[in-house]
């Protein structure tokens, strides 16, 4: 565990806490994409199947459980909570995510490190995570008034990805046999997806304006 990895994980954790707090405090999930949350649920379920087969550390297990539990909580609130579900932007959140899921799964069947159920599902989760934020970014683009917390949520998620790249560079330089090309390429793609958002986020912050993304 190096400082970049820890900082990245913490950003990921903070992003989820920000989202939970926002929805819970305002009783509203306005501007939050249910599709992105459901994609993350698929990502976490497929990736953390190893909770049942291998133990890495208490830290690792705890974080996995937090990510799973929090994502399912958000989905439950958005779908079933009496007050919150009414605030969901159903008509705006129309990204057809089956067009992300199917190609990612087919790619995982072809491009993987080992052709086993666990490893294919793990690889699928890596590919799917790279594009899981897209429905959220599209929804933000359609929302005129992005509230601070939703903006911060996406910014923290993007920071987590950027820090993971530094983590990989650090590990590559310090660990003799550390290589994971599929993860690196997907991670770089995932970070590139955020660049446009980062630009407008930082600009609105410097100019002290409300964040809005051009259509």
């Amino acid at each position: 565990m190096n400082i970049f990895r820890l900082a990245g994980d913490m950003m990921h954790l903070f992003s989820i806490i920000v989202l939970l707090l926002k929805i819970n405090a305002t009783r509203s999930c306005r501007g939050v994409s249910l599709k992105t949350q459901e994609l993350y649920a698929i990502v976490f379920v497929c990736r953390y199947l190893d909770l049942f087969t291998s133990f890495i550390s208490l830290y690792n297990t705890t974080m996995k459980l937090i990510f799973l539990l929090s994502t399912f909580t958000i989905i439950y609130w958005m779908r079933f909570h009496k007050v919150i579900r009414v605030t969901y932007d159903r008509e705006q959140d129309t990204f057809r995510y089956q067009f992300l899921i199917l190609p990612c799964f087919l790619l995982a069947l072809v491009l993987n490190n080992e052709f086993s159920a666990m490893e294919v599902l793990w690889t699928f989760s890596i590919y799917l995570e790279a594009v899981a934020i897209l429905p959220q970014l599209v929804l933000l683009q359609r929302t005129n008034n992005i509230d601070n917390l939703t903006g911060n949520y996406v910014f923290l998620l993007g920071s987590y990805r950027a820090l993971y790249i530094l983590n990989w560079i650090y590990r590559f330089m310090t660990e003799p046999n550390y290589r994971q090309y599929l993860v690196w390429i997907s991670g770089i793609v995932q970070t590139i997806v955020y660049i446009d958002f980062f630009y407008y986020y930082i600009r609105s912050w410097r100019n002290n304006e409300k964040l809005s993304l051009p259509a």
Binding site: R5, D9, H12, R47, D50, T53, S54, I56, N60, M63, K64, F67, N113, E114, S116, M118, E119, W122, Y164, N167, V183
Partner: peptide, 10 residues
């Protein structure tokens, strides 16, 4: 073999 690679990142 059979166990598959261990993934230590989240």
């Amino acid at each position: 073999p059979g166990e598959g690679p261990v993934h230590d990142e989240l």
